[in-house]
Amino acid sequence: MSTLWQKDIHRGDRLFQFVLRACAIAAMVLLLFMVVNLGYRSWPAFKVFGLKFFVSSDWDPVNDQFGVVSFVYGTLVSSALALLIAVPVSVGSALCLTELAPRRISAVLGFLIEMLAAIPSVVYGLWGIFVLAPLMRETVQPFLGKYLGWIPLFSGPAYGVGMLTAGILLAIMIIPTILSISREVFFAIPRAQREAALALGATRFETLWIAVVKSSVSGLFGASVLGLARAFGETMAVTMVIGNRAEVAVSLFAPGQTMASVIANEYAEATTDIHLAALGAVGVTLFLVSWLINSTARAIVSRSERRGGAGGR
């Protein structure tokens, strides 16, 4: 009886291992299939435009001229803006929730903030058009223009929609992601580490800084990279507030367009083969840029870990 039982366990183990391996391979095969299919579909565009596709910002479907620069610029700038706003806010509130707020309040607040992640992005987009954009046009942009207008970033007419608005909307959308991971990272730090800092005579602020924040840098970095990934791929909400103009403008008030939004905008009604291929090529570019940013981030994290940062996880 007992040997049979054990044998069954081993069989179960093997089955489990097999299932897990199949899952892992399926994920890889799916990725490979995506790359191959994307490459196949975009090939005609690369054949016609070659490397010019990556250095031209001319996007003219009527005359079959396609270049991706303005979309790469739009994706990078709007996502960078979003990170710039979202990381301090999320890390700050995660600190507050784990270290300062009473348990009960922290649980309720944490739950509410994570709820933000469940709102569909088209709702964010509509809110962006009807609430955020008028606020930007009437209050925020005139204020920035008045006091910081001498910086080219904050010059030009205030339309309400544009790069800055898209960045702010994206920031709101990625805060739940970064916040909830940062919270887990802070939770994972042993209590003893905080007590040790206090015992050495550190003030409360110093304890937070030295024992909690500094030792979770790589974890926080990971959280930010995940947030960035969401900002990169976000389509609907950004499309609704970015103004959809294929050009590289210095001012953050000016309209722009991202790689994801041009695909969403034009794919359904693209009729010529070269237009479809060019949109596929934008997908390839998005793939390459995300991959580049992700691997750079990974390299930075592993370097900081090797240098002796304890690591939050």
């Binding site: 001319d58 996007w59 929609v161 499309t239 609704m240 959809n244 905008n265």
Partner: peptide, 13 residues
């Protein structure tokens, strides 16, 4: 065409 290169203005989806 269904999508053109607009000389000016903002685009809404």
């Amino acid at each position: 065409g269904a999508a053109v290169k607009w000389p000016t203005g903002l685009g809404g989806k």
